[in-house]
């Protein structure tokens, strides 16, 4: 019982701060809550959910969220893996490079949004200057007010941070990989690619699963970067679900609808995370 006594304060605190508000939000989602939020209002059953699920705005936002998440998860994980492998090689200045890897991760999400918003700016941005000098573009382009590139840029900004996070975790995994394993394989005639697919990847699989699952959750719940860069615009080009919910709750104060949306988002993040765990673990089992 000593263990329970030690854990009780944390348990009570988390129950009060997490469980109670979650239950309340679920309750809100089945009521027509007045805008002042003082009472629950009349019980409406699943009406809020039917309204949400039959609205184009929701499906459009879910689509944007999916696009953002797919780009975010794939590029964060792959770039992170590439950086981890690179920083695991021997080269002059490796310590410095590893310290550099930490900078994007240590930067607050909101600051990343602000930084990239201005970096990509159409008149004073640095990205335009660089692309212009490289001859990739012929004139300044306002990427964030162009619906075709705004979402892609929010993905790049978020990936800039999250690839570092993935890189840090995967590098830590690589550092525990015994050198002998690669040595032995190369003596047996395994080339670089064979060593990569037969040694590095299986060794990193647990870390890769963790990173991918965390990235999926981060992707669905991302708010700060998009809020700072575009606030969901131009139009609804970058209006992911978290931004849509924010607008429902604090813009038009539709508490019931917003809560239903929030519950849906939580379920999506949970299901997405669990499904990934399941799929990746099954892949691991079939790989032996």
């Amino acid at each position: 019982m000593f263990g329970l006594k030690l854990t009780a304060p944390a348990g009570i605190l988390l129950a009060a701060l997490l469980l109670v508000p979650t239950v309340l939000t679920v309750l809100y989602s089945v009521h027509d809550v007045p805008a002042n939020g003082r009472s629950l209002g009349p019980f409406v059953g699943l009406e809020n959910y039917t309204i949400v699920l039959s609205s184009n705005v929701f499906w459009r936002s879910a689509w944007v969220t999916s696009l953002f998440s797919i780009g975010f998860v794939i590029f964060s994980t792959l770039i992170g893996l590439a950086m981890a492998i690179l920083l695991n090689q021997r080269f002059v200045g490796r310590g410095l490079a590893r310290a550099m890897l930490i900078i994007p991760w240590a930067t607050p999400w909101l600051v990343i949004g602000i930084l990239w918003k201005w970096y990509a700016d159409g008149s004073v941005g640095g990205l335009n200057a660089i692309l212009l000098k490289l001859g990739i573009i012929s004139d300044y382009h306002d990427f964030l007010s162009d619906p075709n590139s705004a979402l892609a840029l929010t993905v790049v900004a978020a990936v800039w941070r999250q690839a570092s996070f993935a890189g840090i975790l995967l590098l830590a995994g690589l550092q525990t990989l015994p050198d002998d394993l690669n040595e032995a394989a190369s003596l047996d005639g395994a080339n670089l690619w064979q060593r990569f697919t037969n040694i590095t990847i299986p060794w990193l699989r647990p870390a890769l699963i963790t990173v991918t699952v965390l990235n999926i959750i981060y992707a669905f719940l991302q708010f700060d970067v998009i809020f700072a860069m575009t606030q969901g615009g131009p139009g609804d080009a970058t209006q992911v679900l978290s931004i849509l919910i924010y607008r429902q709750l604090f813009g038009v104060t539709q508490i019931g609808l917003g809560s239903a949306l929030a519950v849906i988002l939580g379920v999506i993040a949970l299901v997405g995370g669990l499904l990934t765990v399941k799929i990746l673990y099954r892949a691991e089992r079939t790989h032996g």
């Binding site: 000593f2 854990t7 669905f220």
Partner: peptide, 27 residues
């Protein structure tokens, strides 16, 4: 000093990551 329910507690802590901040900010 693991107790009965301590595994469940750990599990719920891990799962709590998927609760969107926006879902609990209202209360």
């Amino acid at each position: 000093y693991p107790f009965s329910g301590s595994r469940l507690f750990e599990l719920s802590i891990i799962i709590s990551r998927v609760i969107p901040a926006i879902a609990i900010i209202g209360p």
